Computed example of a mutant assay.
Amino acid sequence: MTTAAVSPVSPDEDSIAVAAEALPRVQDYLRRHTEGHAVVRVVDGEDGEQLVVPRGAVELLARVLAHMANGHSVSVVPAHAELTTQQAAELLNVSRPYLIGLLEAGEIEYRKVGTHRRVLAGSVLSYKHREDLRRRSAADELAELAQDMDLS
């Protein structure tokens, strides 16, 4: 497997505006077309060319547009891509030493290539998802405790 570069696309003001305009149209399309392939019309000047893409690609496009519309940088990394520890740390927004600790503790799967660690992007994203669920659960529990104690 090869190591994937994680180079985000940072939207400028024009891109943010275009993404914000396109997002509701893509979301509306997905709501109206719930099954099968999505048909996207790509227009180049006066000529229109029809392109058929998998629904998952259109769903991914909607997520990308949502982030761009909010001014966030976006990168797309295949789940099977191998990341360096620095890339994985950046994806999680943690320091490299902290990530190494997670790897050594068995929280995220990795393999060694010589003396270097390689981490599957899918493993990093699975860890991120588990942690998001754990944090959300803890926040819900705190909110419930606050309500029980009439602190809200």
Rank of each mutant, 00 (worst) to 15 (best):
R55P: 01
G56S: 05
T115P: 01
D12E: 04
R32W: 07
H129R: 11
Q147A: 14
E144K: 05
D28P: 10
L125D: 14
E141Y: 14
E131D: 15
T115F: 02
V53A: 05
A17H: 09
E107V: 10
R41Y: 02
S123Q: 02
P78L: 05
A17Y: 12
A69V: 00
V94W: 09
R117T: 01
A89L: 02
Q27W: 05
M68L: 11
A66T: 03
H67V: 03
Y127A: 13
S75M: 00
A105T: 10
A81R: 01
Q87V: 05
A22I: 03
S152Q: 12
A121R: 00
T115W: 06
A20D: 10
G101E: 12
Y29L: 07
H37P: 14
V39R: 06
T115S: 07
E104D: 08
V58R: 00
A139D: 13
G36K: 00
A121N: 00
A19H: 08
V94Q: 04
M1S: 13
R96L: 08
R96C: 11
V43N: 14
R96D: 12
G56W: 02
V39F: 01
S152T: 15
P8V: 12
S137V: 15
E109K: 15
L60K: 06
D150G: 13
E131Y: 14
D148P: 07
P97T: 03
D14C: 07
H33N: 14
A22W: 06
P78T: 09
E13L: 11
L125K: 14
L133F: 07
A62Y: 10
V39T: 04
A89Q: 00
R134I: 10
G122Y: 09
R96G: 07
E13M: 06
M1Q: 15
L133W: 06
A38D: 06
G48V: 15
R134K: 11
D44K: 10
V26E: 00
Q87G: 05
V94Y: 07
G36W: 02
I108N: 11
V9S: 10
R96Y: 05
